[in-house]
Amino acid sequence: MAKHRRLNKTTTRRVAAASAAVMGATVLAPGVAGAVEVVVPNTDVRVDVQGLDQVQGLQNVPNIEQFVPSMQSAPAAGNYAAAVTVPTAAPASSGQAIVDAVRSKVGAPYAWGAAGPSSFDCSGLTSWAYKQVGKSIPRTSQAQASAGQRVSLDALQPGDIIAYYGGASHVGIYVGNGMIIDALGSGSPVAERPLHYMPIHSAVRF
């Protein structure tokens, strides 16, 4: 039962209209949940509506913040049992974050034994990019090729490491669309190249 105060015929109609607008969204689950306060604009009428925190798409109702103050700012402690939860965008995958990190270094100079942040060798670049997303991987190209989980070329995902040549002496990061980014060698800055630019040894995922 909703708790209410100071309702007359006029405000009752306003409450009904406000509730109809709010409840136009789809309910996720039936049953009683925490009460959420609904207000009638330009009045002192406030109604605690049970189960409103379970409504999906509530944030999409036009001018919803006028009726449900919790949609505009977090409620003060103790105002009601449960606040309305507004969905947020999912974070980018770690693979895409690795790609974003390595792409930020395109044009950086090659330097043997360097692992960033201003210059790189091949495995220094891959280990640096993984470090940006909180992943620690082996430092050398051979160790990276050995330690990662082997994946087939037809199952590549952005962020996978591609090892090249018979001894896995070179590595790059697969960035999608048949391309890698690597630190190729002296005189060649970090750049994007075709996946099959060199003979492939293996592909691994961490």
Rank of each mutant, 00 (worst) to 15 (best):
M1D: 08
A2R: 03
K3Y: 01
H4F: 02
R5W: 00
R6E: 07
S19D: 11
A20I: 12
G24M: 10
V39M: 01
T43R: 01
R46F: 00
V49L: 14
V49D: 01
G51Y: 00
L52T: 05
Q59V: 08
Q66I: 05
F67P: 00
P69W: 01
A74L: 12
A90P: 03
A97C: 02
A101T: 07
S104L: 04
V106E: 09
Y110Q: 03
A114S: 13
G116A: 11
F120Y: 13
F120K: 04
C122A: 12
C122K: 00
T126Q: 05
T126S: 14
Q132A: 10
Q132W: 09
G134C: 09
I137Y: 04
R139M: 09
Q142F: 08
R150H: 14
L156S: 08
D160G: 06
A163W: 02
G167F: 05
H170V: 05
N177F: 00
M179N: 08
D182P: 01
D182M: 03
A183W: 01
L184A: 13
S186H: 11
S188R: 14
R193S: 07
R193N: 09
R193K: 12
L195A: 07
Y197Q: 15
Y197H: 14
M198F: 12
M198V: 06
I200D: 07
V204K: 04
R205H: 14
